[in-house]
């Protein structure tokens, strides 16, 4: 990657909780983000969870 040719954009591959968090933080840090998700919606596995350990709240 040539240093002078860096684009000010970032691609995030995968829209689960990790990808969504990375994308959110990147935009807050001043970068345009392409969030790429192969399924119809973001959320990933976490969106299927009922509650989370150890507090047993939903964390949504």
């Amino acid at each position: 990657m040539a240093k002078k040719n860096k684009a000010g954009t970032v691609m995030v591959v995968g829209g689960g909780v990790a990808g969504v968090q990375a994308a959110l933080d990147l935009t807050e840090l001043g970068f345009y983000v392409y969030l790429v998700e192969k399924s119809a919606a973001v959320g990933g596995v976490m969106a299927q969870l009922d509650k989370t350990f150890p507090t047993n709240d939903c964390s949504l």
Binding site: V10, D25, L29, G30, F31
Partner: peptide, 23 residues
């Protein structure tokens, strides 16, 4: 979630000269 924030921060360091240009 921690790793995501960390990765965002590393990318932000790598591209700091381009910050704000793409948005």
């Amino acid at each position: 979630v921690t790793q995501s924030s960390a990765a965002a921060g590393i990318a932000s360091g790598l591209l700091k000269k381009q910050r704000g240009k793409g948005i």
